[in-house]
Structures are given as structure tokens and as C-alpha cells.
Design a protein around this nucleic acid. Structure first.
Length: 484
RNA sequence: CGGGGUGUAGCGCAGUUUGGUAGCGCAUCUGGUUUGGGACCAGAGGGCCGCGGGUUCAAAUCCUGCCACCCCGACCA
């Protein structure tokens, strides 16, 4: 394989450079690559086919894993009576400020107003309460794919929208141990999805009490670090203990004959993940999509396609790749020039571009260009299918590794609060530190700097004996960052 | 909710200071030549200048009220 670099430009004119204005770069990328459009209602976005295909990829992976672990899909209603939402105190306090209300049916005012679900714990609990009678029925392992509405004040496509697509799993179990095992199992599936599908390395751990889900006993999270040093919560799994089952009077007759409350979990991942994919992998030329998620994994661009034999060769290659299960597109349109096509597919993040022209046919080769590194190489035509398939895996591995290196480079330790503040401003990223575990200390840091505890990682290290923020004895190691 | 910015053709913008025929680039349509890194020539179509009120012979432009969106903060997946 001979290699040649073609990096005459590392940006395109349509997209703001990320080092100039990261927020604008993000907006440019999603708009120029046709992932979304803004709708007439603020905060509600249209997900266009190319963007929706990314969500379908995430859905397919998770849905398969959910089912492999014994879960079933169901569907619960969009509207929740106010009285149900109000049953769990912490929950309603957490969500009330951002729920949307339905007050009329046609022109008639409703006797009780209905909220559009911001999440479905309450409606699902009301049904579980009706259904559950015996320990023999447990566990309930249900999931639903739906959208929820949270009336956000400031919104950004994928990262924070007033309506977003997600899945929410809701399970109840006989024992606390089973619920805890379920909570952790689902978090691990999210992490597996992030790393194997999205090529995004995650830090997994528990949320502080301040950051946990409204109504949860404990919230677990996977956190990713973006190009700009801000963290993105990418999936959460909650152990709800008996908070909701008691509030909703969900009971069953246990093995001893006594009435018991089951132990509950809920877990979710949303279209926000797509924002993460963009902010971790993409560059100034546009999207860089991880191969297993890319709606088009390989695009074949025939060169001088009117010349004899070119299209036939391109077609044969297309069929060969397709037969290997590769999502391949042959662009034999004539409206746009070759150069235009190169730029277009690069902007759209297609992992591999293959060029087939008269010269290559003569030499028995094809040209393969990697989107992630922009490297172009010559591939023998015989056996090209297998070579390309392997290259897709290599690209995935390389992207994951680069993201890991980038994250680690942006992860820092420090000795004093002042040093922490300086580094957070000058080289933002994950701050790895001991913490006292006191809520007042955490609140003070947030008020001072806007930085929050992203998680208390499972992988604990002992970095010292005192909390560098307040001087109290250290309780555990945490990752801190500014967050989306 | 605070601070900043922007609304003019499908998209991106100029024009507004100093009122006087609605402009440019890209995209679109027609015909032709092209095609190994965003092609070229010729022609064509496309506008409630965000919305309402006012000033004026005359308003994209001046005054006034409203609305929407974007960005940065505060709060949340």
C-alpha cells in the first residue's frame, strides 16, 4: 500500500473553524450536513433523514442489547394527570418548572390539567401498581422508545431541545440487590454502546446527591469529554429504591406472605448522544462519523465515468462491498463534479471514499481515502472487499483511541483551588480530584466557577487525604468539569 | 431570567448612517462544453425587505410597539 497525504486545506469555507468559535462550528456542522433543521416552535427541531439515521443506529444497538438482557418494549401514554406527577415529592419539585401542560380538550377546559411527559416514572408506576400482585410476576423489565418534553429556556439541536427522542427503561424487582444489579448492568450497556458503536470513551460512576435524578436513591452516569473541554452526560441509570413504589403504593405478596414494595430502576439515553458524536470526532471539514454508526460507510466515486468500463467496475465493486454487509453508496450522478463530491462526502463524515478511474482499472487497484486521517492509499482490486472491511474496523479503533488520548490530555490534577480555577479557564477539561463529599462545598464550587462534579468514578484512586476546595477530610475521588 | 447580536429571494449576505426603480454570491431552471479535489459559457425564473402602528409626496431606510431566532451566562438529559 502506498500512501499519500492530501491536506492542502484542513477546513472548508462553509464551516466556522472550531478554534475560532466552537458553538458556531457545531451549529454550522449540523446545519451544513443536513442533520437537522429548526422548526416553527422554538426548541423543537426537525431531525432530517441523515440525522435520524444516526439515531436509528443507536436504537438498533441498544434495542438488541436490551432484548438480550431480557427486556421488552411497551408504550405508555404521552399525557400524565397532574395528580400522578405530584405523588413523589422530590420528583415533582425537580420537573415541575419545565413541564408543558395540556389544559383544554377542544374548546372545553379540562377538569384536571395533563402534563406532557417529561419522563414516565409516574405514569408507569400508576400502571405497575394496578398490575402487580405477586413476587412470581417479578421482575418487570420494560422499556419504551418515545419522546419527552421539557420546556427549556435555552436550546441547541441534539444537546438540549424542548422535545427529545430517547428510550426509558423502567424495571421493578423483588430485592434491593436485584435492582442495584440491574442499574449497573444497564449503565454498562450504555458504556459498551458508546465505545463499540460511537467510539467515544466514557468515564463511568455515580452522581453526587446534588446531581442525581429527582426521586432517585442513586444515579449512575457515563460522562464523555468534548473537543472544547466540556463534559456531556451521555446515559444515566437510576436506582430508585422504593421511593416511587411506596409513593404509588405498588405492592406484591412476597415469599413469606407479607405485602412488600418492589425495588425499582429507570435508565435512559437520548438523541443527545448524537451531539456527543459530533463534538468528540468531527473537525473543521465537517462530520467524522464512527464507521459502525455511519449511515453510509463507504462511498464510491467513479472518475471520468463516461469512459468505457468505469461504471461497470464501480458497480462490480459496489455489489462486492454490499454482499459483505457494508453500507455502501455509489455516486454515479453527473450533476456535480468529482471535486464537489469529494468535499460533500467528507463534510458528511463518510468514513471511506473509494475512487475508481481509468488509471486504477488499468493498474488493477482502487484508491481508498480515510475521512478520519484524510490519508489516501492504493488498494489491490483483488480482495478489496475484505481490505475495506478491515479498514472500517481500524478506523473505529483509531477514532476511539484518539478520543481517549484527547480526553486524557484534557484531564488534569491540581493542588489548590486557585490552580483549579486557572486550569479550568486556560485548559478546560476533566479535573480529577479528591472531594470531601459535602454538599455545601460542591454548591460553593458551582457558584464560584460553574464547574460541577460529573461523577464519582467506579475506578477510584487515592490522590490525597484532604479536599483541596475546603480542607475537610477527603471522602472520594471525583471528576469535575463544566457540562453541557 | 440577565447580557450581546440578527431578521431583505431557497441559503448566505450588501443596501439602512444621508428616505427616491430591490441588489450580490451560491442554489434552482434551459441549452451546450466539462469531470483524478468545491467546473465553464450563454440565457431565465424567483421578494408582504419579521409583524403592527406612525411621520412623509415617497419608507428596507426615520420614529414607535411587538414578535421570532442565534450566541454567551444562570438552571436542566
Amino acid at each position: 500500500m502506498s500512501k499519500q497525504n492530501e491536506k492542502e486545506k484542513d477546513f472548508v469555507k462553509d464551516i466556522t473553524k472550531m478554534e475560532d468559535d466552537f458553538a458556531q462550528w457545531y451549529t454550522d456542522v449540523i446545519k451544513k450536513t443536513d442533520l437537522v433543521d429548526y422548526s416553527p416552535v422554538k426548541g423543537f427541531m426537525v431531525i432530517k433523514p441523515y440525522g435520524y439515521a444516526l439515531w436509528e443506529g443507536i436504537q438498533a444497538f441498544l434495542d438488541r442489547r436490551f432484548k438480550e438482557t431480557g427486556h421488552q418494549n411497551a408504550y405508555f401514554p404521552l399525557l400524565i394527570p397532574e395528580s400522578l406527577l405530584n405523588k413523589e415529592k422530590e420528583h415533582v419539585e425537580g420537573f415541575a418548572p419545565e413541564v408543558a401542560w395540556v389544559t383544554h380538550g377542544g374548546s372545553e377546559p379540562l377538569a384536571e390539567r395533563l402534563c406532557i411527559r417529561p419522563t414516565s416514572e409516574t405514569i408507569i408506576c400508576s400502571m405497575y401498581s394496578k398490575w402487580l400482585t405477586s413476587y412470581r410476576e417479578l421482575p418487570y423489565l420494560y422499556n419504551q422508545w418515545c419522546s419527552v418534553v421539557r420546556w427549556e429556556k435555552s436550546t441547541r439541536p441534539f444537546l438540549r431541545t424542548s422535545e427529545f427522542l430517547w428510550q426509558e427503561g423502567h424495571t421493578i424487582h423483588e430485592t434491593a440487590e436485584q435492582a442495584q444489579a440491574e442499574t449497573i448492568q444497564m449503565l454498562e450497556i450504555y458504556q459498551e454502546m458508546a465505545e463499540e458503536l460511537l467510539a467515544i470513551p466514557m468515564v463511568a460512576g455515580r452522581k453526587s446527591d446534588r446531581e442525581k435524578f429527582a426521586g432517585a436513591e442513586a444515579t449512575y452516569t457515563i460522562e464523555a469529554l468534548m473537543h472544547d473541554g466540556k463534559a456531556l452526560q451521555s446515559g444515566t441509570s437510576h436506582n430508585l429504591a422504593q421511593h416511587f413504589t411506596k409513593a404509588f403504593d405498588i405492592t406484591f405478596q412476597g415469599r413469606t406472605g407479607e405485602l412488600e414494595y418492589p425495588h425499582q430502576t429507570s435508565w435512559g439515553a437520548s438523541t443527545r448522544l448524537i451531539g456527543g458524536v459530533i463534538m468528540v470526532h468531527s473537525d473543521n471539514r465537517g462530520l467524522v462519523l464512527p464507521p459502525r454508526l455511519a449511515p453510509i460507510q463507504v462511498v464510491i466515486v467513479p472518475i471520468a465515468q463516461k469512459k468505457e468500463g468505469v461504471l461497470e467496475h464501480a458497480n462490480a465493486l459496489y455489489e462486492e462491498l454490499k454482499a459483505l454487509g457494508i453500507k455502501v453508496k455509489l455516486d454515479d450522478t453527473t450533476e456535480n463534479s468529482t471535486g464537489w463530491k469529494f468535499n460533500e462526502y467528507e463534510m458528511k463524515g463518510v468514513p471511506i471514499r473509494i475512487e475508481v478511474g481509468p488509471r486504477d482499472i488499468e493498474n488493477g487497484v482502487i484508491m481508498a481515502a480515510r475521512r478520519d486521517t484524510l490519508e489516501k492509499s492504493t488498494v489491490e482490486r483483488v480482495g478489496a472487499g475484505e481490505t475495506i472491511k478491515k479498514l472500517l474496523d481500524t478506523i473505529h479503533d483509531d477514532m476511539l483511541e484518539r478520543a481517549r488520548i484527547s480526553r486524557d490530555e484534557k484531564t488534569f490534577t491540581f493542588d489548590t483551588y486557585d490552580e483549579f480555577k486557572t486550569k479550568m479557564v486556560e485548559t478546560p477539561g476533566f479535573a480529577k480530584t479528591m472531594h470531601c463529599g459535602l454538599d455545601a462545598c460542591e454548591a460553593q464550587i458551582k457558584a464560584d466557577t460553574g464547574v460541577t462534579i460529573r461523577c464519582i468514578p467506579f475506578a477510584q484512586e487515592n490522590l490525597g487525604d484532604t479536599c483541596p476546595f475546603c480542607g475537610e477530610p477527603a471522602k472520594h475521588m471525583v471528576y469535575m468539569a463544566k457540562a453541557y
